[in-house]
Simulated assay, not measured.
Amino acid sequence: MLLWLSANGATIIITLILIILVVLAGRKIRKRKGNCGCGHCGCGCDNCYFKNVPEQSENKKE
């Protein structure tokens, strides 16, 4: 077991660092998304350009 850990120690440390960075990036993106859930900016719905733009429906009527 110690032989395996010593042989793969650098890989394990790099993998843990990458996992931590991905988790932190995901938290920052979720936090920046804002309360309105539009995902376009972190300013909130009061200043959002897209707040008055209607959502496009999947079933378009012609």
Rank of each mutant, 00 (worst) to 15 (best):
A25S: 15
N8K: 05
E55R: 11
G26Q: 04
K31Q: 14
F50T: 04
S6Q: 11
I12E: 03
G39F: 11
N59L: 11
G26V: 08
A10K: 09
K31F: 02
K33C: 01
N59H: 09
K31E: 05
N47Y: 10
N52T: 04
C41P: 02
I14W: 05
I14L: 15
K31A: 09
R32T: 02
L16P: 00
M1Q: 06
V22A: 10
I14H: 13
K31L: 03
A7P: 00
K60N: 05
L24A: 15
I29G: 02
E58C: 04
C36Y: 02
I20Y: 05
D46F: 13
G42L: 01
F50P: 00
M1D: 03
G37E: 05
S6N: 15
C48N: 06
A7C: 01
I19S: 12
C43M: 10
R32H: 05
L5F: 13
I13Y: 08
I12Q: 14
K51V: 08
L2Y: 04
E62S: 06
G39D: 01
N59Y: 15
Q56F: 00
A7G: 00
K61P: 00
E62L: 11
G42M: 01
G37H: 06
L3D: 09
C41H: 00
K60R: 12
L16T: 10
Q56M: 06
K60Y: 07
E62M: 04
N47Q: 10
L21R: 07
R32K: 12
V23S: 09
K33L: 02
A7H: 01
H40R: 09
H40F: 10
M1V: 13
G39Q: 03
L18I: 05
S6G: 11
F50E: 13
L18T: 04
R32V: 00
K28L: 06
C41S: 06
L16V: 10
E55I: 14
C41I: 00
C36V: 01
K33A: 15
C36W: 03
K51T: 07
C43T: 08
C48Q: 11
Y49R: 13
C43N: 10
N8C: 08
I12P: 01
V23G: 08
C48L: 08
K28F: 05
K33R: 15
A10P: 00
R30T: 02
A10G: 09
A25N: 13
S6Y: 03
P54A: 09
E58G: 12
K51G: 03
V23D: 08
I20F: 07
F50C: 04
S6V: 12
E62A: 10
C43K: 09
G34Q: 03
P54I: 02
T15G: 15
A10T: 10
G39R: 03
E62Q: 07
N35V: 03
I20W: 13
R27K: 11
C45N: 06
I17W: 07
Y49P: 00
G37K: 02
N8F: 12
E55H: 05
N8P: 00
G42P: 02
S6P: 01
N47W: 01
R27I: 12
R32W: 09
I17L: 15
K60Q: 13
V23Y: 06
I29V: 15
C36Q: 07
R27C: 08
S6F: 08
V23A: 14
L21I: 07
K61M: 01
N8T: 12
